[in-house]
Design a protein around this nucleic acid. Structure first.
Length: 269
DNA sequence: ACGAGAACCTGTTTGC
DNA sequence: TGCAAACAGGTTCTCG
């Protein structure tokens, strides 16, 4: 979202090209016409949704799903659409923004501004993790009595919005909490540590993602989107970054409700 | 009401 | 080497 602000905020979408009937859900049939010549007022993020506020009290809502990318092409790059470039936005400055999504788990919708708060995909979302509303006390309250593993609770967007699989694993590692621990046993001091770890991990990830997003734009799509600087995620078999040194403790992988979980069995209890 | 698993897709990596 | 299975950053829906 931050990478799109420069190319989009205050600009006008001269034209949009839609090449697929739908992503996760069908696209509005008149999406291209309704975006044509619209001025972009500002960009906002809610959970994992990008909200592009347009003149005329409407917002373009976008979710990248698993594989979605927004690619920014500078003026004059004049490159033909690539595979899975499903939607292209042309701005009045001659830039192109392309929504590429191989798996098509992403979504796009055009919503009246007054209906955003009650949109079915937004209305049940929990607090933003980087706001004051999300703290140890809040986490304690919503975890109380829950019998699901804490990892599953962190991924429940109704409890807290915007935490994905990678950052759920990372936050649990930095909080020293086992992903298998029942959510109801986390309230109190553990919840304080976990809320802090979530904020810390997300803040650092946004910094890293933001910087590589800028590289991505400048290099015309050649560089990767994220720098991989994870402590445990994707590191099964590697020494635990905290205790793995001489003891030979390694990061483990397991599957919880269909998702990979990475953790240190010694550091996380 | 709640939680686990399936389903939605395509591409890439891993294992036999 | 070739093919099939497993796996991938998410979310909703169904089923028990």
């Amino acid at each position: 979202m931050r990478g799109l602000r420069g190319p989009l905020e205050g600009r006008r979408i001269l034209r949009a090209e839609v090449r697929v009937p739908g992503l996760r859900w069908p696209l509005p049939g008149d999406l291209a016409e309704r975006l044509s010549c619209r001025r972009v007022e500002r960009l906002e993020r809610r959970a994992k949704y990008i909200l592009v506020h347009l003149e005329g009290a409407e917002a373009l809502m976008a979710h990248l799903g698993m594989s979605g990318r927004m690619m920014v092409l500078p003026r004059g790059s004049n490159r033909p659409p690539e595979k899975h470039d499903h939607v292209t936005f042309h701005t009045d400055e001659g830039m192109e923004i392309r929504f590429n999504d191989a798996r098509r788990f992403g979504m796009l919708d055009l919503v009246a501004a007054e209906k955003l708060a009650t949109h079915r995909l937004l209305r049940d979302l929990g607090p933003e993790p980087l706001t004051q509303a999300f703290d140890g006390a809040y986490l304690s309250r919503v975890l109380a009595g829950k019998i699901s593993p804490i990892k599953a609770a962190l991924l429940d967007q109704r409890l807290v919005a915007g935490i994905g699989n990678i950052y759920a694993c990372e936050a649990l590692f930095f909080a020293g909490i086992s992903p298998k621990r029942l959510a109801r046993s986390v309230p109190g001091r553990r919840a304080e540590a976990l809320a802090a770890a979530v904020k810390d991990v997300l803040t650092r990830a946004i910094e890293a993602g933001g910087s590589s997003l800028r590289d991505y734009v400048q290099s015309d799509g050649e560089l990767g989107y994220f720098q991989h600087q994870w402590a445990v995620y994707g590191r099964a078999g590697a020494p635990c970054p905290s205790c793995g040194g001489e003891r030979g403790v390694v990061v483990m992988r397991m599957v919880q409700s269909g998702r990979s979980t990475f953790y240190c069995p010694r550091c996380q209890r």
